[in-house]
């Protein structure tokens, strides 16, 4: 089991989600974050004040997957998040010691295997 942490551009999030769902990755968490990844800062002006915006808006995805899902997940994120410009973000893969599904108490591999297809909400 691995934890995949990806930091991407917010405007690419829809594309990434689409690619992930297409790759049958069904469990994920996102958060809005700010970061600096080597891209050039842009300058903003408010009346007489000019500022360099050193932190850019980013979205962080956290996805716990079983081993054979690692590569498909990475591929999906690459497909959705890459624009070719500096600032596209990073994907990090971390080992996981233990996963527990709260609803059932299932652990590890079972906990990250979807038991049934996700039903759409009316």
């Amino acid at each position: 089991m691995k934890l995949i942490v990806a930091v991407i551009r917010p405007e690419q999030l829809s594309d990434v989600l689409e690619a992930l769902f297409h790759a049958e990755v069904r469990g994920l968490t996102i958060s809005r974050v700010q970061g600096h990844g080597g891209e050039m800062e842009h300058v903003e002006n408010y009346r007489g004040t000019s500022v360099k915006m050193a932190l850019a808006e980013k979205v962080r995805l956290e996805i716990g997957v079983s081993n054979h899902f690692v590569q498909p997940t990475i591929d999906a994120i690459l497909a959705g998040a890459r624009t070719g410009e500096v600032g596209d973000g990073k994907i990090m893969v971390l080992p996981i010691e233990k996963i527990v599904r709260i609803r059932t108490g299932e652990e590890d591999q079972d906990a990250v295997t979807p038991v049934q297809p996700v039903e759409s909400i009316e």
Binding site: V43, N45, Y46, T49, S50, V51, M53
Partner: peptide, 20 residues
């Protein structure tokens, strides 16, 4: 426009006037 509607100013570094 070089502006944002909703910015908290996090990470905003003041540019000295002569440089701006």
């Amino acid at each position: 426009h070089g502006e944002e509607a909703y910015t908290h100013g996090d990470g905003a570094i003041l540019v000295p006037a002569h440089r701006s």
